[in-house]
Design a binder for these strands. Structure first.
Lengths: 110, 110
DNA sequence: CCAATCCGCAACCCAAAGGTTGCGTATACT
DNA sequence: AGTATACGCAACCTTTGGGTTGCGGATTGG
């Protein structure tokens, strides 16, 4: 799965990971232990989630002394939003085409 | 998991399901067998995916004679996009607050 | 220097997810 | 009526994913 959009959706599919993303959107940085304190799971679980988010390009890590700071990099969110927007747009334009087609046939009939 | 946004992300996490969504965005309706013809999986697998998409509110099914037609209902996409937008907005405003703070301290220093 | 943190790595567990096959049933075609 | 098509349901298999525990290695503080 090298598709970047797919990795983003996969990353956001987990509720704990979404919580982490929300938390990182408010604080500027956080460590795995800090985040684990607000979640019903262990530090290692959070670390795995952060690794997954990093894999998706949503988070970057930097080591500061004995602790590792994680920071949000919301760039890939835009790509995922683009995908949804394009699906919605295709759907809309299909509806529009259908509507004009119905209009023209109605006009022809009247 | 009653959170609607979570269900949408979970639904879009699977590549086959995303393909189905894309396909349904172009055609207006499709059956499970039609979609399975363009995918490397069986009809039943596609049926399960369509059930998952329906669970997420992204698809609706209607029975027409001996075949079941599936149609896209992209409403929930908006909610998911809202979530991403709000995360991005929080991130942006945090950056803005940080920037003004730096500006003011620089002003004080000068 | 020693103790307390903070982390990463590895092994392991278990439930869930994606997929398949098999079968029964309803609808259409001839 | 009989055959072919399209579906749903259920059992089953296998992999993945989220989670935990148990270490051992760095880094900070007394």
């Amino acid at each position: 799965m090298s598709d970047p959009t797919g990795r983003v959706f996969d990353a956001l599919a987990d509720p704990n990971r979404r919580f982490v993303v929300e938390a990182l959107a408010e604080r500027e940085t956080a460590t795995a232990t800090e985040l684990a304190a607000e979640l019903p799971v262990t530090r290692q679980a959070v670390a795995k989630h952060l690794a997954a988010l990093n894999e998706a390009g949503l988070v970057e890590s930097r080591r500061e002394g004995r602790e590792t700071l994680y920071e949000l990099t919301p760039g890939p969110l835009a790509a995922a939003m683009d995908w949804m927007a394009s699906v919605g747009a295709e759907w809309d334009s299909r509806l529009a085409r259908l509507r004009t087609h119905l209009d023209s046939s109605r006009k022809r009939r009247s």
